Simulated scan of single mutants.
Amino acid sequence: MGFIGTLCLLLVLTTLAGHFSNRIGMPSVIGQILVGIVVGPAVLGWIHLDTTINLFSEIGVIILMFIGGLESNLTLLRKYLRPAIIVACMGVIFPVILMGATANLLGLSAFESLFIGVVFSATSVSISVEVLREYGALDTKEGATILGAAVADDIIGVILLSIMISLMGTQGLSTTGSQQNIGLVLIEQVLFFVATYFVVKWIAPYLMGISEKLLMASSRTITSMVICLGMAWLANLVGLSGAVGAFFAGIAVAHTPSRNVIAEHMEPLGYATFIPLFFVSIGLNMSFSHIQDSLIFIIIMTILACLTKLAGCGLGAKMSGFSRQSDYMIGAGMVSRGEMGLIIAQIGFSAGLLSATYYSDMILIIVLATMIAPFLLKHAIKKLPNEANEPLVDRQLEQI
C-alpha cells in the first residue's frame, strides 16, 4: 500500500504545481517536472524512481502520444513529410558532429564521444506535444513538421545506436539478449511501418466498428486502448520507442467515427494519473550527487544540447521554405530529449558504450535540456504571427 500513498502525494503536488505554473505563465509540465526534482533524490529524497512509478510513467507517455495522434491531422503530416525528414536529418547531423567533437575535446574517447552525439540526436516529442496542445499549436504546419521530424529522429537514432553496438561486437538493440544485426533491425522497422499503414487504413476502422456493437460499457474506449497498447508494444519490439507506435495508433483511431468519443474518454484517463507521473519521473531521474566534479562538462553539453537542435532543425526548416519565426518554433520543438534520450543512453550504457561516471552526467544533461525545451517552445509559439499561430485547417476553412 506504500505506493498508493506515494501516488496520492504526487497527484496532489503535480496538480498544484501545474496550476501555479500556468498562473505565472509557464507550461504546466515544468511544474510537474520540478515536483519530481524536489521530492526525488536531487533535493528531499522522499521518493525514488522504482519499478511501479516507471511502469505508470511508460503508460503515461504512451497515452500522451496516443492523444497527440488523435489530435493530429494526417493530411498535414503527409503534406509536410518532406520538410520533416529534412529537419530530422539536420537535427541528427548537428548534435552528432558538434556534441561528439566537444565531448572528445573534453577528454572522452572517440567512441564515447560519438555515442554522446548519438544520444543527443534523438528527440522526445512527448514534451513538445503537451506544450503544443496547451497553446493550441498542435494542428499547424509547424506542429505537423515537429511531429513528423521527431518520429524520423527516433528511427535514425535507433539505427545509429544499432551500428555502434555492432561495432562494439555486441550485436543487437534488445536488452533481453536476443541477437539482432542492423539489417534485421531495418527490415523489422520497415515491416512495422507497413503494418501501420494497414492498421490506419483497415484494421483500426474494422475493430472500432465491431466495438460499437459490443454490449459492454466503454467498449469503444477499451478497443482504442487495445490498439494503442498493441501498436506501442510492436514499436518497442522492433527497437523503436513505444511512443511512436502509440502516436500512429492515435492517428488510426482518429480516422474513425469514434474519434471525438475516444478523445473525451482518453484525456481524463491519461491526465488523472498516468501522464503526470511521466513528467514527475523525468525529475526523479535527476541527481546532484556528483555535479561538482563534472559541472563544466554538464553546463557546456546542456547548452550544446539546446543549440544543436535549435540551429540544426531550424536550418532544416529554413531549407524547406519556412519563415524565420517558424524555423525557431520547429527548432525549439525538437530540443526535448525526454524518455527517448534516456532510453538510448540506458541501452548504450548497458552495451558498454559509456562509463558509469559519464552516464550519470548524461542523465542530468538530458533532464536539463528537457526542462529548458518547454520554455523555448512557448517563447517560439508567441513569436509567431497571430495568423500563423492558428490551426491551419481553421485558416483553410475561413478562406473557403
Rank of each mutant, 00 (worst) to 15 (best):
V199L: 12
T256C: 13
I165V: 09
G68L: 03
M362Q: 10
L315I: 14
G352V: 14
L167C: 04
L98G: 02
L173W: 06
I97D: 00
Y197G: 01
G157R: 04
G100N: 10
I363W: 04
L106C: 12
H48W: 05
V119E: 06
I303K: 06
L81A: 15
I155N: 02
H290L: 11
L70C: 07
R133L: 15
G169I: 10
I37G: 04
L106T: 11
V280G: 11
L138G: 00
H48A: 13
L353V: 12
T370D: 05
L304C: 09
M362V: 15
L74W: 01
G117F: 05
A263D: 14
T221C: 12
G245N: 08
P83E: 03
C8M: 14
N386P: 00
K201W: 02
E58C: 00
V96C: 10
P257M: 12
T15M: 13
I400Y: 02
A103D: 10
L74R: 14
V280F: 07
L138M: 12
R220G: 08
A246S: 13
G100K: 03
M1N: 10
L397R: 12
P276K: 03
G338N: 02
E339Q: 09
I363A: 06
T223A: 15
L376D: 08
G177I: 03
G25L: 06
I400M: 12
L240G: 02
V367Y: 05
D153K: 01
T256W: 12
L64W: 05
M26W: 13
L277G: 01
I182R: 07
G348D: 04
L34K: 00
F111V: 15
I67S: 09
I156N: 01
T140D: 05
G68S: 06
L167R: 09
G136S: 10
A217Y: 11
L315E: 03
G69R: 06
G333C: 03
V35L: 05
A149S: 14
R82T: 10
L229T: 05
F20D: 06
I344L: 14
S281V: 05
V335F: 02
A84T: 07
L10N: 04
A42H: 12
S294L: 07
